[in-house]
């Protein structure tokens, strides 16, 4: 009973102190607000019905403009990536043509590589492919690498078929020479070429993650520095039936647990102090659709 009285006293103190509080907001809030409502405010003098009509017209026109500009950008990018690729291939051809000595070829193939790397970056931006997927694919068939260069260059320089044969022979030679020293990087880049050629026939179709896929991602790092990236620890998953997560510190004391995948750990201890940087252990018990229940233990690094 005494406890309840204290609670009541405590509560009423806060209620009285806060319920009818009035604090004038700082300057600038109204200015911000009115600028956000700007489009509506400009229609003041017009009668209300007309105002609503015009706003809907505005929306329509702006939508149209947006669609038009987006499609323009896409077309421009597709064109760009094409032309870039062509120039690149001709560059490869030039480089390969001049290579006879094994010493030179290494340097030049490195040049090609760096150029390819650059183009890879820009192409990734244009097409929206995430690098990990490409890596996976390139890992899966590294042996075909030299073949692919041959093919792509032949396709590219159809008009100069004879030349391109010579070039591809040259490239075969160079890759044989350089294979011992550049065993993995060279094939990767050439596969990259292959990927892009596929894209030309059906652009912007590579979606890294389908919306309805079932997956779980257990991150192993969290950086609570309020930069908006990995500030809280959360398991990303879809298609789960069961879920439970617990986080332990290095003394194996449980500091967080949840059975809701949307609940994130804000890197605070139960006494609300910030959890220190260091290693933590995450145990996740989960069951995804069409599979058995699993328990996974992950080392989590907290960096401050």
């Amino acid at each position: 009973m005494i406890e309840k009285n204290i609670n009541n006293e405590f509560d009423s103190l806060f209620k009285e102190g806060l319920e009818n509080n009035a604090i004038t907001p700082p300057n600038g809030v109204w200015e911000n607000l009115s600028s956000q409502m700007g489009s509506q405010a400009s229609n003041v003098t017009i009668a209300k019905t007309i105002a609503t009509k015009t706003t809907s017209l505005w929306i329509k026109t702006s939508l149209f403009i947006a669609v038009a500009s987006i499609s323009g950008v896409i077309a421009y990018q597709a064109f760009n990536s094409k032309t870039e690729q062509q120039t690149l291939n001709s560059e490869i051809a030039n480089n390969a043509n001049t290579t006879n000595n094994s010493g030179q070829t290494i340097i030049q193939s490195e040049e090609i590589e760096s150029e390819l790397n650059e183009s890879e970056k820009s192409d990734n931006k244009n097409i929206g492919v995430t690098p990990p997927i490409l890596n996976e694919k390139s890992k899966s068939k590294p042996q075909n690498a030299t073949h692919n260069t041959k093919e792509t260059i032949v396709i590219e320089n159809k008009t100069t078929a004879k030349e391109s044969k010579d070039i591809s022979d040259n490239i075969d030679n160079t890759s044989k020479n350089t294979n011992s020293k550049l065993p993995e990087t060279q094939p990767n880049e050439t596969i990259q070429n292959d990927e892009i050629y596929k894209d030309e026939s059906e652009p912007i179709t590579l979606n890294p993650i389908k919306k309805d896929t079932i997956f779980i991602i257990i991150p192993n790092v969290v950086t609570p520095n309020n930069d908006g990236i990995n500030d809280v620890y959360r398991i990303e998953m879809k298609g789960e039936i069961k879920f439970y997560m617990a986080i332990f510190n290095d003394k194996m004391e449980r500091i967080f647990e949840t059975s809701n995948k949307n609940n994130a750990w804000d890197c605070k201890l139960s006494n609300l102090e910030d959890a220190p940087a260091g290693n933590y252990i995450v145990i996740v018990k989960y069951q995804l659709k069409n599979s058995d229940e699993k328990t996974e233990t992950t080392k989590l690094k907290l960096i401050r």
Binding site: L18, N21, A22, I23, P25, V29
Partner: peptide, 8 residues
């Protein structure tokens, strides 16, 4: 009129 109360 409203903002002080609502800001609180």
């Amino acid at each position: 009129i409203l903002s002080p109360r609502m800001f609180a």
